[in-house]
Amino acid sequence: MSVASQDTTIRTGRVTRALIYLTLLLFALFYLMPLFVMVVNSLKPLHEITSGNMMALPEVWTIEPWRKAWSEAQIGVQATGLKPYFWNSIKMVVPAVFLSTMLGALNGYVLTKWRFRGDTILFGLMLFACFIPFQIVLIPMARVLGIFGLAGTTWGLVLVHLVYGIGFTTLYFRNYYAAFPTELVRAAQIDGAGFFQIFWRILLPSSGPIIVVSVIWQFTNIWNDFLFGASFADFSSQPMTVALNNLVQSSHGVKEYNVHFAAAILAALPTLLVYIVAGRYFVRGLMAGSVKG
C-alpha cells in the first residue's frame, strides 16, 4: 500500500522539503506580523509604546486601551468610544446583507427558472453594477437619498449598500440556480406550488452554500465600507469605519496608539468572526456556484 501511494507522489529530497517549509513559515510570519504588533501594542500602557520597542511584549499587561476604545475614547465631539458606532454598523449591515441576499436569490430564481424575453440582457446590465466605481454615484445618490428623505440615516445607508450589492448577489445566485435542475421546478408546478412557494420550499432550502458566499461577501464589503459611510451618514448613523478614522485622525490631544490599535482590532473583529464561522463554506459555495449544483 505505502509503496503504491509513494509512486504517485512527487519525490522530494529532505533538503528541498525543508526549504519549502522554511519559505512557507517565513511567509506565514510575515503575514501574521501586523496582527502581532496590533495585539501586543493594544495590551500595553501608552508610555511603553512611545518610549520602547513596537515589537516587544508588554511589561505590564493591561486591557485598559480596549475598554477605552470601546466606551470612553473621544470621537468627534463626545467621549463615547466606539460603542454607539459599532451598533450603527450592525444596524446598517444586518438589514443590508439580509435584503441584498434575498433579492439576489429572487433575481437568480427568476433569471434562470422563469426565463423571459431579454433576460440575458437584463442580467448583463445588472452585472454592470459590479463594475461601477463608488465615486461616480456619490452625487446622484446624495440627491436620491435627499428626495426619499433618507439622507443621513441608517436606512439611507442600507439602501445604498442594497442597490450596490444586488449586482453581486444576483450573479452568485443566478450561476448557482443555473445548475439547479429545472425538472424540480416543473415537478413543483405540477404539485401545485406557486411562484413564491417554489422559491421558499424548494430553491432556498437547497441554497445553503451560495447563501453563505453571498452573506460573507456582502457582510465584509458593507462592514468595511468607508466612502459611503463618510459621505451619507450623520453623527447619529456613522458606521464603525468612519468612527475609527475620526478617532485616529483627531488632531488634538495625545495620540493614544494603544487605544488606536485596540479600536482597529475591534473594527475588524466582526468580519474576522464571519470568516472563521462560515469560511469553510465559502470556497465550497464558490465552487458549487461555478461547477455544479
Binding site: 435542475p181 425538472e183 424540480l184 416543473r186 415537478a187 413543483a188 420550499r201 424548494i202 437547497s206
Partner: peptide, 8 residues
C-alpha cells in the same frame, strides 16, 4: 420525470 426530480 427522467431524473425523478425529488426535492433534495
Amino acid at each position: 420525470f427522467q431524473s425523478y426530480a425529488l426535492y433534495p
